[in-house]
């Protein structure tokens, strides 16, 4: 990845059913982080590499994507935007694209090769991100509730074979732990897949994200790193400085 001059650091924003931003621990306990529009505006000012917004209740509750709301969110984004949560049909994506979402993040849909293939056929593989959540060596869907019986690598490979252009590999156990990422798993998956791998889960500081990049990830994503500061997890939206602002620009 050395030619990509700056590793991609991706804040992940979790929306709940009340359209609030929250941060979870091990896919459970939730902490309120803020109003999505305020937080997106802050990340915009900080010129983040990319944003990933996931509605973590849409899949399980089964409600429809509110395209008006997504359009408002995307309208604030002058950076790449990935959106996930409740995607089950290729027809949901035309309005998402029109409103400025360029990547679709599939959760339960990761186990649906027909859906992945249909999305890749219309929007291209690079628009389809498979999010593989795992714990104890197994990939889980539906917010960590349902065991697919597959290893994370097997599910990721199947998703890529079906047409996914990017894979998020997320440790459920490390979610919100802020102690570091699962470098062994990240390294294994990144070495085996032909597509970019995004590490997620466990980071609490930028150094953790850098470790994941060193382990082979093309990008490192985090909720906690960019939302919390200090041992007591005070909410503070932060992001590393833009390298192009430094004298001479290139790192």
């Amino acid at each position: 990845m050395s030619d990509i001059e700056r590793p991609r650091y991706i804040p992940v924003l979790l929306l709940d059913r009340q359209r609030r931003l929250v941060k979870t621990v091990a896919f459970g306990e939730r902490t309120y982080v803020g109003d999505p529009f305020n937080v997106i505006r802050l990340f915009n000012e900080k010129e983040v590499d990319e944003l990933c917004i996931l509605d973590i209740d849409a899949g399980r509750d089964g409600y429809e994507i509110d395209h008006g709301f997504v359009a408002e969110l995307a309208g604030e984004c002058f950076m790449p935007l990935a959106y996930g949560g409740g995607l089950r049909d290729v027809r949901q994506c035309a309005p998402l694209v029109r409103n400025g979402v360029e990547k679709f993040v599939l959760g339960a849909g990761t186990t649906n090769p027909a859906l992945i293939g249909a999305l890749a056929g219309v929007y291209g593989s690079s628009s389809v991100v498979a999010c593989v959540d795992y714990r104890g060596g197994h990939a889980f869907v539906d917010g960590g509730q349902r065991d697919t019986g597959l290893s994370p690598l097997a599910l990721a490979k199947a998703a890529v074979a079906a047409g996914a252009g990017e894979v998020i590999i997320q440790s459920i156990e490390r979610d919100g732990a802020r102690t570091g990422m699962d470098l062994a798993m990240i390294g294994t998956v990144a070495a085996e897949l032909p597509v970019p791998v995004i590490a997620l889960g466990g980071a609490g500081e930028v150094a953790h994200l850098a470790e994941a990049i060193d382990a082979g990830a093309a990008a490192a994503a985090s909720g906690s790193t960019f939302s919390f500061i200090g041992r007591l997890r005070a909410v503070l939206v932060t992001y590393p400085e833009d390298l192009t602002d430094k004298t001479g620009g290139a790192p």
Partner: peptide, 30 residues
């Protein structure tokens, strides 16, 4: 090399061009 290529790159400019001339500092694009 990953394909698709997804991420930010610094742009190199082999010549003057109307859309890219005016930037004095390095530019990165997605």
């Amino acid at each position: 090399l990953s394909v698709p290529n997804i991420g930010w790159h610094m742009l190199e400019k082999p010549r003057m061009s109307p859309l890219l001339d005016n930037a004095t500092r390095p530019e990165r694009f997605y």
